[in-house]
Design a protein around this nucleic acid. Structure first.
Lengths: 364, 364
DNA sequence: GCCTGATGCTCAAACGTTTCAGCACTTCCT
DNA sequence: AGGAAGTGCTGAAACGTTTGAGCATCAGGC
């Protein structure tokens, strides 16, 4: 029907169709019969613009499908409306987990609610990493950043906090008291998981496979395990194997615990991936889970539901984390100088088959 | 040296530290002693700028840590350097899969290489969906978009293609011949999986649990299955149960096939999630996999590695898909009028335990 | 000596937005 | 009547970038 001239010198009005020029303030202004400034102020609900004009402007804007040009707005404002989500490559073990996706879903819903957009920087390549997120922030493409990293003393993290740009960290960063962070109560989560084995299943000889202790997450989960064990009124025996959150580390850790502790009754792994590794090791030694050795994981990002037996685990509310972090970030951006806070979200124990036979949804 | 008065009134020179003003072309210009235009042209390697000036400018830019303001550049250019990744909520089953993360990794590496950034729009909420990605594109925050959707006739998809904005679709869209797409050869993948059951394991009575047939992906996988079955020289019996890619649909589909086909020897599910559901159903009926019924899934996004037995599946190269789609998109953006092409990436059969005992990496 | 062409830069304008000062007009108060 | 205050808008400027036109300067060819 309508000839498509693309850049179009000939046709005048193009109500719709491919290649039509974007609607600007000027377009609305000429429709309504006021200046672009008035349109801008009307849309911002400025008190000095008359009611009638505001309504006319809003109607025209809706009619024409006006959406403010983000570049123009950002340039004028001196900062972008976008927020960046940075995943430094130190969080490699995060890739392949639904964790990050859940985080993103949370962040994007908050961003949608704030009429903002989400820019992401995942950096699989070590070499380009600094350049990539650095470029995003230095180019002022984002008005703030959410950093999903796990390593303590990651130099990137403190550098970013130091830039003065609004930044929210995901996780606990006790050594960065000046930073705003949103994390989960891993100590309580690990204590709940361990307490479940102790109290509900009456087990007393429990080994823990921890993550790398440069990660606060790994430290906290170990701390929760230790606290629960030492607070048990009856005599307990605890063991520790240090892993790196990988399946292989789970196998190795389980082997180490089995060889080192006589009468091992349960293994609490610091994440589901390692619990799965431990499961494989136990199975290869002919040990049954949970009859011979009970098993508990951590994260509940999808792995734990699929194994046989299904894994008892501790759910980390990733989507909530992302949402909270984004909300916090928008608060920082708006207030320019928000108070420094460290939010800690609660966790939830998810009992499944691998710790014993109670409360297991049975297969029909 | 040069006093930076900008935001703070007290301190004079801040070579570094929080709150320092961003470096602009003007800053470099005043250091080098030329006009901002000359700096811009020098950095763009314009032939009319002298060698000496170029070198001085580049040195100063490096020294000051100059990064072009993205808003300024986008405003001037009339389009952003970012690309958007849109995940319409029709692709719900994608959430929670590492698929999307892998896709993102591929897209971001390409974007890094092109000095671009990635904007993402995941829209868990039906109501805000149109508004969210619409806003991104209408605000010209992105110079192009990659759409990861699955449903045929998703109105969003054709609308986006019609905007005239450079768009690359992920998946096969035979009904949108004017659109650029990057997909996988699902027909060949499904045929390979089915052929594996037929030729390598000698099975002849095979049921397929398909996805919803509004999805091209589901159609293609069914088509591959059918083709392989009918091309088999010996007499075969095929069955079909239509599912929706969910675990429950896998259970239901398996039940339907088991009840409907006597002597069922194998089930080929259109994704791993449904294969897992089928596994649960088989197990609850006391049937062993693979001894009584062989099982094959599709996707290899993580599920298949974890089940017991591990699932034979077909690997979808998600990271590659993302990378290719981004490369294609940058091609479109640069060329302004690239040719319409439909790339199809090859797939790979991943034999594991659930189809039989050959070539299984045994547990040590 | 003058034209031609090349070289190396500057200037101005423009992208779309927001904001601030200011103008014109009305209304109210004394 | 005359000033003050309020109302509703306009015009200009600015954010940082890119680019085409234009202005010098200089080398070489006749």
């Amino acid at each position: 029907m309508t000839p498509v001239e693309q850049v179009n010198k000939t046709s005048k009005a193009q109500p719709s169709g491919p290649g039509r020029a974007p609607v600007t303030l000027r377009d609305i202004a000429s429709v309504v019969g006021v200046s672009p400034s008035a349109v801008s102020m009307a849309l911002a609900d400025h008190p000095r613009i008359g009611r009638a004009t505001k309504e006319a402007v809003r109607a025209a804007a809706r009619e024409l499908g006006y959406v403010a040009n983000s570049a123009g707005r950002a340039l004028r404002a001196g900062r972008s409306t976008s927020i960046a989500v940075v995943v430094p490559n130190t969080a490699q073990h995060v890739f392949g987990h639904p964790y990050f996706m859940q985080l993103l879903v949370g962040v994007t819903s908050s961003a949608n609610a704030h009429d903002s957009t989400v820019l992401i920087s995942t950096n699989p390549d070590q070499h380009h990493e600094v350049a990539a997120y650095d470029r995003i922030l230095r180019s002022q493409a984002a008005g703030g950043a959410i950093i999903a990293s796990a390593a303590i003393n990651d130099p990137n993290v403190s550098r970013m906090v130091d830039t003065g740009l609004p930044v929210v960290l995901i996780g606990r960063y006790p050594h960065l008291p000046q930073a705003v962070s949103v994390g989960v109560d891993d100590v309580a989560g690990a204590a709940a998981a361990t307490g479940h084995l102790l109290s509900d299943h009456g087990l007393r000889r429990i080994g823990h496979i921890s993550g790398p202790l440069e990660h606060q997450t790994a430290l906290d989960r170990y701390e929760g395990f230790r606290a629960a064990m030492t607070q048990c009124p009856e005599p307990c025996v605890q063991g520790l194997a240090i892993g790196d959150f990988s399946e292989q580390a789970g196998r190795d850790g389980a082997a180490q615990l089995l060889d080192g502790m006589s009468g091992l009754q349960a293994i609490f792994a610091a994440n589901d991936e390692m619990a799965y590794g431990a499961l494989l090791e136990l199975r290869s030694r002919g040990l049954r889970v949970p009859q011979d050795v009970a098993l508990v994981g951590y994260d509940d990002f999808g792995v734990s539901r699929l194994t046989t037996p299904t894994l008892t685990t501790v759910r980390v509310p990733a989507e909530d984390l992302g949402w909270q972090a984004a909300e916090r970030l928008f608060g920082l951006i708006d207030a320019a100088a928000g108070e420094v806070t460290h939010s800690v979200l609660p966790i939830e124990l998810v009992p499944r088959e691998s710790c014993g036979t109670h409360s297991v949804p049975s297969v029909p």
